[in-house]
Amino acid sequence: MSTINGKVWKFGDAIDTDIIIPARYLILPLDQMKHKAMEPLRPEFAAQVSKGDVIVAGKNFGCGSSREQAPAVLKELGIRAIVAVSFARIFFRNAINLGIPVIECEGASAKVEEGDDIEINLSSGEVRIPKRDLSFSSSKLPDFLLEIINDGGLIPHLTSKGKS
């Protein structure tokens, strides 16, 4: 689990929650809602994204609403991790609560391209594009957050702890 490999979907700065999942779709059941992810900006995204893909974006990813549906639709579509220059506060916390690794990485956004095969080492914080010999350092998530992510989110983390 500590290393993630996936194909990159590239996004810009300030991808807000109304881009990730527009307000009008929030009351759809999640398996219908997920088909609307990123619709205003990239309507092809939901249909073409594959399980294990990774989003690389600029600054303030997930700004706006507190809607947990935003990370939830990305998770439902199989997004394995999100690498961004920075994240909005509520989105960051929501993503971890759903077990999605969110990696703050200053350098990747400028150099990583759509379709690149990316490798993320969660333990060391290293982000690489092996084919192009690119390597970036990121802010490593603290161990207690990695544990939550490993368990698949806060709820499974708490309930599995309760059981053991």
């Binding site: 609403s65 507190s66 947990e68 990370p71 509520i90 916390r93 929501n94 609560n97 759903l98 989110g153």
Partner: peptide
């Protein structure tokens, strides 16, 4: 809801969170 921060107008600490939190 992200706009929960409104209540600071009367000196309360209030903040928006997601569904799990």
């Amino acid at each position: 809801d992200s706009h929960t921060c409104t209540y600071g107008g009367i000196g309360a600490f209030s903040t928006g969170v997601g569904s799990t939190d």
